[in-house]
């Protein structure tokens, strides 16, 4: 910043000092700045510019080609009447409550078991549980579709053959679709969360659990009253990630259910993608993205505040 001439020399000196030293600082560390410059370049183009342009687009009607028509708040007003968008938000919450508690709990239990030195071949089991995470979700989605086919799928054939249960419409009903999606997500993401939990467990000194056991706690009590409270920050981390994850679900939905049946599994991300690249309504999709961003931002803030205050 260049400093304008002031009435007194005194203020000029004091106000010109910080920018001067900032510039000096940049010159002094010019090589460091040069090396981190590529990040800022890509951030400016692909991060900041596109975010701001998308904000501008949210007040317009644009097919992606041709003139951009400014329409004020019309997109935002139609959004509140858009049943699919509202449903996609509800689905985000529903899916979050359906799979996150179960997945985090399973991840924690598995992590505790596999963290124990008494389990034979724990590295083998860790690897097995982690493999789905690195597997291509498109291939996995197709496999799940075959397994869950109502009439010919292996899952229903087993259930009918062994337990004599009537074929379950896994992908052919509203709740079946949601449950199937949760199964796929838990299958794919359990290993990832388990590794986070394992990392957290390794920071907990084993003396604490041992002390509890000496005082007469059984392993289950030690798990609930010692391990879980100490793991709270790690659990919070996983829950926050999963919250964003369940609204951001795309590949899993796109491959397994396509958002059906009757939009029961459509997530905001899938809906925004469809409006932008299926229907070419880029202005509307931008408005959706901003509303979605605001809601997610508030939710995350709330979560961090609520859980964060209890950490210590």
């Amino acid at each position: 910043m260049l400093v304008a001439a002031d009435s007194t020399g005194k203020t000029r000196i004091s106000s010109s000092k910080p920018p001067h030293s900032l510039w000096k600082e940049i010159v002094r560390a010019r090589w460091s700045y040069l090396f981190i410059f590529p990040f800022y370049l890509t951030f400016l183009i692909f991060g900041l510019y596109s975010t701001l342009f998308s904000f501008y687009l949210s007040f317009t009607e644009w097919k992606g080609l041709g003139p951009i028509k400014f329409i004020g708040l019309k997109n935002y007003i139609s959004l509140f009447k858009d049943k699919v968008f509202i449903q996609s938000m509800e689905n985000g919450f529903l899916l979050f409550f359906m799979y996150v508690p179960l997945m985090i709990f399973l991840a924690l239990v598995l992590a505790v078991i596999l963290n124990s030195k008494h389990v034979r071949g724990f590295q083998f089991f860790r690897t097995i549980i982690f493999i789905p995470y690195i597997m291509n979700i498109v291939a996995a989605g197709f496999a799940f579709r075959l397994l869950l086919n109502q009439k010919y799928g292996v899952v229903n054939n087993l259930l009918t053959g062994i337990f004599n249960i009537a074929p379950i419409p896994w992908l052919e009903s509203v709740w079946g679709g949601r449950v199937s999606l949760c199964l796929l997500i838990i299958w794919a993401w359990l290993g990832y969360n388990m590794v986070i939990m394992l990392a957290g467990l390794q920071t907990i000194p084993s003396e604490l659990t041992e002390a509890a056991m000496i005082d007469g706690a059984n392993p289950v009590q030690a798990f609930f009253y010692v391990t879980i409270p100490l793991m709270r920050p790690v659990i919070l981390f996983s829950v926050v990630l999963s919250l964003m994850g369940s609204f951001n679900l795309f590949n899993e939905v796109y491959i397994l259910t396509g958002g059906g049946s009757m939009n029961a599994t459509i997530t905001p991300f899938v809906d925004i993608f469809g409006q932008a690249f299926g229907n070419f309504r880029l202005g509307y999709a931008s408005a959706m993205a901003y509303i979605y961003f605001i809601i997610l931002f508030i939710l995350t803030l709330f979560q961090v505040r609520y859980f964060g205050s209890r950490v210590d």
């Binding site: 049946s261 009757m262 939009n263 299926g278 229907n279 309504r281």
Partner: peptide, 21 residues
């Protein structure tokens, strides 16, 4: 020009009718 959008909404309607919703 609006086929993809119309097909999406109508498909949902058909699903509702077919499943008795």
């Amino acid at each position: 020009p609006n086929y993809s959008l119309m097909n999406k909404y109508v498909s949902t309607a058909i699903q509702k009718v077919a499943t008795g919703a």
